[in-house]
Design a protein around this nucleic acid. Structure first.
Lengths: 368, 368
DNA sequence: CTTACGATTGAGACCGGACTCACATGGGGT
DNA sequence: ACCCCATGTGAGTCCGGTCTCAATCGTAAG
């Protein structure tokens, strides 16, 4: 007795051809919808195909056309809804253009990323969208480029790699939001990011992530414009996991001259910082002001709701897919990318610092 | 002049063979690490491969081995961190076993799901893990099974499909948490789910999602055990988007005999319900008690932190991958699946209902 | 009644590997 | 010295499609 779950051989063009009493070539033409086929033959072939439940072997097809009609996406952390939303933008656009999308998650691990790129290249995807992990290693991406596969970067630039990058400009919004904090009276503004790096932050140092570099750059611009001194010890990187995030947050809030406002560079950091603030018994925004990148749905639920910097993530994803597809279809042509702007969404987590409130109260008292 | 980004032909075994002065067969053996190859030949071949930067064409390999060393995952909503975490469980396990993982997101759309399954089948994945969208349509899954590809379902059962299902049992924890609400004094307990369905909920009706069916079943068991009457109008499905979720929540909280406790079936529903509660000016848990499925990091940040039902999502994902890999390696053998239990995590969103607090106060007054 | 040209058709090469098979080669056993 | 069998090797087939090329067919033009 034959096990029904054993892998029976799929029906092939040859099978269909035999059933339809035509040559393999004719059957292939009728099925692939190319070349010249008489109505009679086409009908017989399609009927036979239907009858035998024929499914083309896409692998074989890809092997000698070189096209797979598939685009590959490599993403650092799929648990981050930021990428989830971007994925939807990518998928929707790709699907509309007739491309399938396959995704590989790397967990922000460089080795996994290299592997993911290899796998997708091996599966002969027509193009790749990569959100590179924070790392200065771009050899694997150069390989994609060298192999002649279109590549578009998402969210992060790769210095020295001539490839379209789709990302929101962070400098401007970083400057604006820092200016807003300064206006509110803050002088000690901290920035915390998960970005992995060897040494502590120093001005002018090379950062692997252009996003983070821009955010810091914008912040420093605002500080300088206000005549303030950008303070290196308030920029904290390497906040990799929940524990180190909380440790860093505590340190910043308990130092001799503590930070009065904290900017969290992503959702993970935000979670840790807010928890640390709560554990220290501090209140937002009375004792500490808080600002975070990315507008997640839950940021509206906290008390107070959190002031965030929102990016048009879906559109950025869609635009990345669009750019890639254009690259695939017209290899030579230069790509023009739209510019995306992030915006500050005022909610309730930014207020005047304690010292500022005291100052106002005193000046009010002096005036009366 | 040749455009450097034009797709140059990759080097093949034949090229390597020629360079190493051996036959194609020998080169293939040396590279594929099979058959008998003398040290001399192996060295020359590997050197030539290195020299020519040879990369095997996995497609060609897959075509005549039938194995791709890849497992495909189809997930409804990658934006939901629930699936994100499960993905990590799947990826880690698969990677450790030497399998690549590719993922397709369907946005809970049935057509997209059918398509995703087709694509993965066409790419000849060795097996599939599917979290089926809430739908009674399983034809596409049956096709997977019929094509002889191992299949494991994640989170949801498919009635009438003889396939391993990896999911936590929801009945027990649903009963326990409902019992806990009843003990706290609640009599009007509402349940809200995104599950898509034609008509309003009625007892005994067929539900497309086994998870939801189990949750309701457990809830009803607890109510009956406490001598209470499970109330159909408090079970609300079709809470598809933010607006309908909030509308339903408002309705439940403003009805003549309002719900005093609300159970949200997933993170999306939770977001909407909490927002609706806040907008109505009600307080958790003083005015309404709240309980939700899935323990997301942000549930600890709200005031009060939310009481949740936590599932070992990572482990469930890992177990699904493990089961699938066993199916791939030993097609005949029956699979034994571990049983996963969800647990209630007491935090701060459940309290006594207003009526109960009044009753206690009065009885205390009477006693004094 | 030819001739020519476009539409059809089938045979077979080819994509890039894996694998079968027939054929050397040579060391160990007797 | 002779046989046996394990190891090495190359030629060629196969996987399931696409695509080239030459042959065939019909028919409208000359």
């Amino acid at each position: 007795m034959k096990n029904s779950s054993s892998r029976q051989r799929d029906t092939t063009v040859a099978d269909v051809a035999k059933a339809a009493q035509v040559s393999k070539a004719q059957a292939a033409r009728a099925l692939g919808n190319y070349g010249a086929v008489s109505d009679d033959v086409r009908e017989r072939v399609l009927a036979a195909a239907e009858e035998l439940n024929y499914r083309p072997n896409e692998l074989a097809r890809t092997m000698n056309t070189g096209k797979s009609n598939t685009i590959g996406v490599v993403v650092g952390d799929i648990e981050n809804p930021h990428f989830g939303l971007a994925m939807r933008g990518i998928s929707d656009t790709a699907k509309a253009a007739g491309f399938d999308v396959i995704l590989i998650n790397t967990g922000e691990d460089h080795v996994a990323e290299v592997d993911a790129v290899r796998v997708l290249l091996e599966k002969r995807v027509d193009g790749l969208i990569v959100a590179p992990a924070s790392s200065a290693e771009y050899e694997h991406l150069r390989r994609v480029h060298d192999a002649g596969r279109p590549l578009v970067l998402f969210d992060r630039k790769a210095p020295g790699l001539d490839v379209p990058v789709v990302a929101a400009d962070m400098t401007l919004v970083a400057r604006e939001s820092t200016a807003y904090l300064i206006e509110s009276g803050h002088r000690r503004i901290a920035f915390i990011s998960t970005l992995d790096i060897e040494e502590p932050y120093r001005h002018g140092m090379e950062l692997a992530s252009s996003q983070i570099a821009e955010r810091i750059e914008g912040m420093n611009q605002a500080l300088l414009a206000a005549g303030l001194d950008p303070c290196e010890e308030l920029v904290r990187l390497n906040a990799g996991d929940a524990d180190s995030i909380k440790a860093i947050a505590r340190e910043l809030l308990l130092m001799p001259e503590p930070a009065t406002a904290v900017i969290a560079s992503d959702g993970l950091v935000a979670l840790g910082v807010v928890e640390a603030i709560q554990e220290l018994g501090l209140r937002i925004p009375q004792d500490v002001s808080f600002l975070m990148y990315d507008d997640f749905p839950w940021t509206k639920l906290t008390t107070p709701p959190l002031t965030v910097i929102s990016q048009p993530v879906y559109d950025i994803g869609a635009s990345a897919a669009e750019a890639l597809i254009r690259l695939i279809r017209q290899p030579g042509k230069a790509i023009e990318l739209p510019v995306f702007q992030a915006t500050l969404k005022h909610r309730g987590s930014v207020g005047a610092p304690v010292s500022e409130r005291k100052r106002k109260r005193e000046s009010a008292a002096a005036a009366s």
